[in-house]
Design a protein around this nucleic acid. Structure first.
Lengths: 210, 210
DNA sequence: ACCTGAACACCGTTCAAGT
DNA sequence: ACCTGAACACCGTTCAAGT
């Protein structure tokens, strides 16, 4: 009855329902009606199960449509990764917690390298730049996901932006005046708008040093 | 015998010796020779212990010396945070895994806001910009720490750069040609040099949109 | 208030045994 | 090869009882 795919399905359900800590060997085994040790036939240990789960979520589509230049193509690619991970917030701590290797991260990095090269960056700048973009994209998603308490799906974006604004306005204004004031002046602070804005500022900087 | 400080000392030892998963209520209790439940007198639950541990690592010094303009001051501040976290790599998953509130993150954000405002950014751009910088800094550190297997202290930087280069050169060159080639063209890729370069590109972009 | 000690409901992983 | 079932050495947290 058990199979690699079936175990991963079960693990993904656990991830979505209870967050990264809910992904357990025993839980996945129980979900498919097998003994705990049955999982070890398909995955060497819990880390291997987590890696396989991540790989499954990182198969970004080969073609991105609706982008007319390299900068908006980078943005679309980043937004696509962001969408994937927002759909499974529990995966983010797993992704950020382990080394970025394997086909998923390689595909993402390769596409960034290609786009930055098309944008006119020399190989060294493209290499450094693609890593900087990866850092920004994953850091943004990580902080955004970390902001949300609980384990289930992310609440609607407007709600998250409001929650962030509310949290900022509760910062002690005496000791952190600018931080408290930021609740009033910011346009969005977290959310897609902030994500795109920050990414474009980084791309601005990269374009200055081709 | 137990006290809040003593428990935190023990928890920090556990963190440094065995990584974030080694920080346990029972482990800290055992280290100070108390029963597991004694910890609950000082910390409501494990999450509270982790938060207190993080707060202890994030008391950045008020003055940064040796910086003559706002950009290098931002860089020095970011480098200081990076040093702190590099000294306790196990803390990074904890920091990135929870919401960025509490005095430590607030102080860091407030100082970024002040520096960006000094740099001529209007309040909205400073707010968005400071968040972008935070994202970049924490994302960089997270990816760099995640790259290192095992739980102890980070190996020397030259070693980590070499390891990253070696990992890149083992990427299948047929499917990911640019990624594999990056092992040869990059200057450092991870490490302080890459960190500073990426941060400066982001600051370039921020300076363009004051 | 603060501690101990036992207990409950979990973990990952290992071992011995089956088919 | 792949599974079961029992076991080992852990968890966080709760409960009852002490002082």
């Amino acid at each position: 009855m058990p199979s690699e795919a079936e175990i991963l399905d079960a693990a993904l359900d656990l991830l979505d329902a209870g967050g990264p800590k809910a992904v357990t060997i025993r839980g996945a085994a129980a979900a498919i009606g097998a003994a705990p040790h049955a999982v070890y036939t398909y995955f060497a240990d819990k880390a291997a199960l987590e890696r396989a789960l991540l790989e499954r979520l990182l198969d970004l589509p080969e073609k991105i449509t609706g982008a007319d230049d390299w900068r908006s193509e980078v943005e679309q690619l980043a937004l696509e990764l962001r969408r994937r991970l927002a759909a499974h917030p529990g995966a983010v701590p797993l992704l950020i917690g382990g080394p970025l290797d394997g086909p998923g991260p390689w595909r993402f990095g390769e596409r960034l390298l290609t786009l930055l090269t098309e944008g006119g960056l020399d190989p060294a700048a493209a290499a450094r730049g693609s890593y900087a973009v990866m850092v920004f994209v994953l850091g943004s998603i990580a902080l955004e996901v970390a902001d949300v308490p609980g384990a289930g799906a992310l609440p609607p974006e407007t709600e998250r932006v409001d929650a962030r604004r509310a949290a900022l306005s509760e910062v002690p204004a005496g000791t952190y005046p600018r931080t408290a004031a930021a609740a009033g002046v910011m346009a969005t602070w977290v959310g897609t708008e902030q994500f795109r804005w920050g990414l474009q500022r980084l791309l601005d900087g990269l374009a200055l040093h081709p």
